[in-house]
Amino acid sequence: MPHTHASSADGDEDKPCRACSDFKTWAKTQNRVTFSTPGKNKQPPPQRRKDCPLDKDEIGTATWSFLHSMASYYPKKPSKTQSDDMTKFFNIFAQFYPCEPCAVDFQEDIKKHPPQTDSRDAFAKWLCERHNTVNVKLGKPTFDCSKVHERWKDGWEDGSCD
Score class of each variant (00 low, 15 high):
Met1Pro: 00
Pro2Arg: 00
His3Arg: 02
Ser7Gly: 05
Ser7Phe: 01
Ser8Trp: 04
Ser8Val: 07
Gly11Glu: 00
Gly11Arg: 11
Lys15Pro: 03
Cys17His: 02
Arg18Trp: 03
Arg18Pro: 10
Asp22His: 05
Asp22Asn: 13
Phe23Leu: 12
Lys24Met: 14
Lys24His: 13
Thr25Cys: 08
Trp26Thr: 08
Thr29Ile: 11
Gln30Glu: 14
Gln30Trp: 00
Asn31Thr: 11
Ser36Phe: 07
Pro38Tyr: 05
Lys40Phe: 14
Lys40Leu: 13
Asn41Arg: 05
Gln43His: 09
Pro46Val: 13
Pro46Gly: 04
Arg48Cys: 01
Arg49Gly: 03
Lys50Gly: 09
Asp51Asn: 14
Asp51Gln: 09
Cys52Lys: 11
Cys52Phe: 01
Leu54Pro: 05
Asp57Val: 09
Thr61Ser: 05
Thr61Gly: 12
Ala62Gly: 05
Thr63Tyr: 03
Trp64Cys: 07
Trp64Pro: 00
Ser65Glu: 03
Ser65Val: 05
Leu67Gln: 00
Leu67Lys: 06
Ser69Phe: 01
Ser69Arg: 06
Ala71His: 08
Ser72Ala: 08
Ser72Asp: 00
Tyr74Cys: 09
Lys77Arg: 08
Pro78Met: 03
Ser79Val: 13
Gln82Trp: 01
Gln82Val: 06
Ser83Ala: 10
Asp85Leu: 05
Met86Cys: 09
Thr87Tyr: 02
Thr87Gln: 14
Lys88Gly: 07
Lys88Met: 13
Phe90Cys: 09
Asn91Lys: 01
Asn91Phe: 09
Phe93Asp: 09
Phe93Thr: 09
Ala94Ile: 10
Ala94Met: 08
Gln95Gly: 03
Phe96Val: 12
Tyr97Ala: 11
Tyr97Arg: 08
Tyr97Val: 14
Tyr97Thr: 12
Ala103Gly: 03
Ala103Pro: 01
Ala103Leu: 05
Phe106Arg: 04
Phe106Pro: 06
Glu108Arg: 14
Ile110Phe: 04
Ile110Ala: 08
Lys111Asn: 11
Lys112Ile: 13
His113Ile: 12
Pro114Lys: 14
Pro114Trp: 15
Gln116Pro: 07
Asp118Asn: 13
Asp118Ile: 09
Ser119Ile: 11
Arg120Trp: 04
Asp121Thr: 13
Ala122Met: 10
Phe123Ser: 00
Ala124Pro: 06
Lys125Thr: 15
Trp126Ala: 04
Trp126Met: 07
Leu127Arg: 02
Leu127Trp: 08
Glu129Arg: 05
Arg130Asp: 10
Asn132Gln: 02
Asn132Ser: 08
Val134Glu: 15
Asn135Trp: 03
Val136Gln: 13
Lys137Trp: 08
Lys140Asp: 15
Pro141Asp: 12
Pro141Lys: 13
Phe143Trp: 13
Asp144Pro: 10
Asp144Ile: 08
Lys147Phe: 14
Val148His: 10
His149Met: 13
His149Tyr: 12
Glu150Gln: 06
Glu150Met: 09
Arg151Cys: 14
Lys153Cys: 03
Gly155Tyr: 10
Gly155Leu: 06
Trp156His: 12
Glu157Trp: 03
Asp158Val: 01
Asp158Gly: 01
Asp158Gln: 01
Ser160Ile: 04
Ser160Leu: 02
Cys161Arg: 00
Cys161Asn: 04
